[in-house]
Amino acid sequence: DHIPWITAVLPTVIICVMVFCLILWKW
C-alpha cells in the first residue's frame, strides 16, 4: 500500500508558507 506522503508533507509546506508570508509582511 502507498504511503500518502502528501499528508505528511502538506503541514510542513503550510507552516513554511505561513512563516514566509509573515516575514515578508513584517518587512
Rank of each mutant, 00 (worst) to 15 (best):
L24G: 12
I3G: 12
M18A: 00
W5M: 14
W5V: 05
M18Y: 14
V19H: 14
L10M: 11
V9Y: 01
I3Q: 11
I23W: 15
T7A: 09
V19M: 15
F20H: 02
I15E: 01
L24C: 14
V17L: 05
V17M: 03
H2T: 04
V13Y: 01
C16M: 15
F20G: 07
T12L: 01
I15D: 13
I3H: 11
I3R: 07
C16S: 05
W25A: 15
A8P: 02
V9E: 06
I3F: 03
I3M: 10
I23Y: 10
C16E: 15
W5Y: 05
K26A: 02
C16P: 00
I6L: 05
I6H: 04
W5R: 11
K26N: 02
W25G: 12
T12W: 01
I6N: 10
K26E: 06
W25F: 04
I3C: 14
P11H: 03
H2V: 11
P11R: 07
W27A: 10
W27I: 09
P4Y: 03
L10N: 15
A8N: 15
P4G: 07
L22Q: 06
I3L: 04
T7F: 01
P4T: 02
W25K: 11
V9M: 08
V9T: 00
I6A: 11
H2S: 03
M18W: 11
W27K: 05
V13I: 10
D1T: 11
D1H: 03
P4L: 00
V17A: 08
V13E: 12
W5A: 06
H2P: 08
M18P: 08
T7I: 08
C16H: 15
C16Q: 12
W27S: 08
T12F: 14
P11L: 00
T7S: 11
I14D: 14
L24F: 03
I14V: 07
V9P: 02
C21Y: 12
I23C: 14
I15T: 07
K26F: 06
D1I: 07
H2G: 13
V17P: 00
I14N: 06
V17H: 14
D1P: 11
W27P: 02
V13H: 01
T12S: 07
L24N: 13
T12C: 01
K26M: 06
V9H: 14
T7V: 03
T7N: 09
T12Y: 10
I14H: 02
W5F: 12
W27M: 09
L24P: 06
V9I: 04
C21H: 14
D1A: 10
L22K: 10
L24E: 15
V17S: 06
V17N: 15
W25L: 05
V17D: 06
K26T: 06
T12P: 02
